[in-house]
Simulated assay, not measured.
Amino acid sequence: MLYRQMPKSGDKLSILGFGAMRLPVKEDGSIDEERAARQLRHAIDRGVNYVDTAWPYHTGASEPFLGRALADGYREKVKVATKLPSWLIESREDMDRFLNAQLEKLNTGHIDYYLVHALVGDLWDNVKKLGVTDFLDSAKADGRIINAGFSFHGAGEDFNRIVEAYDWDFCQIQYNFLDEKNQAGKDGLEYAASKNLGVIVMEPLRGGNLTKNLPQAVKEIWDEAPVKRSPAEWALRWVWDHPEVTVVLSGMNEEVHVQENLRIAEQAYPDSLTGAELQLVKRVEIKYRELMKVGCTGCQYCMPCPAGVNIPLCFEHYNNLYLVNNPEGERFMYAARLGGAVALGEPEFASLCVQCGQCAENCPQHIDIPTVLGSVVEELEGPDLEQRAAMAREMFKQI
């Protein structure tokens, strides 16, 4: 395992961080705790020493899971990161209430890396007005948190002013080869580093969209490389190639992914990709932009939908319609997965959208979700939707 140093604390952190937002789950959607704990502990045994969670992950179950999984001496081997749910804060007292609850959930006396979560400009203005800087100072002084930071999902013009507004130890940004100019982007990465902040990177694979359902046109570009690497390895190495990056979070939930990421994290030095390799990645970026219809990462911040729409799954199939050369198959799978055939449940189709706009307000990617859902209806539903859903239910034996 390779390590990089946090500029202010001097902590040597594993370049691979274990993200606890997409843990393996059982059929009922609950965390498969036995499997997830085994994956987490294996990663720690191999040198991972940074574990990231948050109040809403797995609908509130992620933090308590980690409190249990990090027993038996594993808590002492890692730095734990969790986050203040900024959108739920209505008073200065709320901040202490959430932090104290998180300490209890995580079964720990302190949070090593504590972030003000999912900031955009307006959210920052609100929590600052309510006294978040005093809260952070107090929590650091009494030892409940060690390092203070923020995670960012806003417009680039708000990033610098948030960096300047407090003596932060670190920040967390979305960064991958499709997001150099999105949110904080490359400019934000370099600005944070220039201010001596450690930088944690989330969504290096864009919620897995850079690795699954690989379009043939993208595969052909990757296949040109003299050194053969998986799409995940290319994407991770591209992020780690930036010396400003301290840790890259990966939401690992398959054993094979854990093993692959651990292997890559033993080799991914900064500035190690050649000019030809960087140009290859650029060509893949351009091809993806030609093919993708919506920039959803599957982060779930738009959920739950009051009308029952499974927004991330709708967008996954909408992108697949253009990324995978099987439109009829994709329409069938849309009807199957959103119609309750694969897993028992109520329909979750895009056509259930009532245009309330709540999802768009919460989207870190600033997608006009109701409008895009309208396009999903046009291209994936149609008059034979219920017929396809019924066929799927028959096939999956759930009628």
Rank of each mutant, 00 (worst) to 15 (best):
K8V: 12
K8C: 10
S9H: 14
S9E: 11
S9L: 15
S9D: 05
G10D: 13
G10C: 15
G10A: 12
K12G: 05
L13V: 15
L13N: 01
L13S: 12
L13Q: 01
S14P: 08
I15K: 00
L16Q: 02
L16V: 04
L16E: 04
L16W: 03
G17M: 01
G17F: 02
G17V: 02
G17K: 00
G17N: 01
F18M: 03
F18Q: 02
F18H: 07
F18L: 04
F18D: 06
G19F: 04
G19K: 04
A20Y: 14
M21D: 04
R22D: 00
L23K: 01
L23F: 13
L23P: 00
P24D: 03
P24W: 13
P24G: 02
V25T: 11
V25W: 03
K26F: 09
E27S: 11
D28Y: 10
D28W: 11
D28Q: 04
D28P: 04
D28I: 05
D28M: 05
G29P: 15
I31V: 12
D32W: 13
D32M: 11
D32R: 08
E33T: 09
E33P: 05
E33Q: 15
E34L: 08
E34H: 09
E34N: 14
R35M: 07
A36E: 12
A36Y: 12
A37L: 06
A37F: 06
A37Q: 12
R38C: 04
R38L: 13
R38F: 12
Q39R: 09
L40Q: 10
L40M: 11
H42E: 08
A43H: 07
A43E: 05
I44S: 11
D45K: 03
D45E: 15
D45M: 09
R46T: 02
G47N: 05
V48T: 04
N49L: 05
N49I: 10
Y50A: 07
Y50D: 05
V51R: 03
V51W: 09
D52Q: 06
D52L: 08
T53F: 10
T53R: 05
T53Q: 10
A54R: 02
W55L: 00
W55I: 00
P56T: 05
Y57C: 05
Y57I: 01
Y57M: 06
H58I: 06
H58T: 04
H58A: 12
H58N: 10
T59S: 14
G60T: 09
G60S: 10
G60P: 09
A61G: 07
A61P: 11
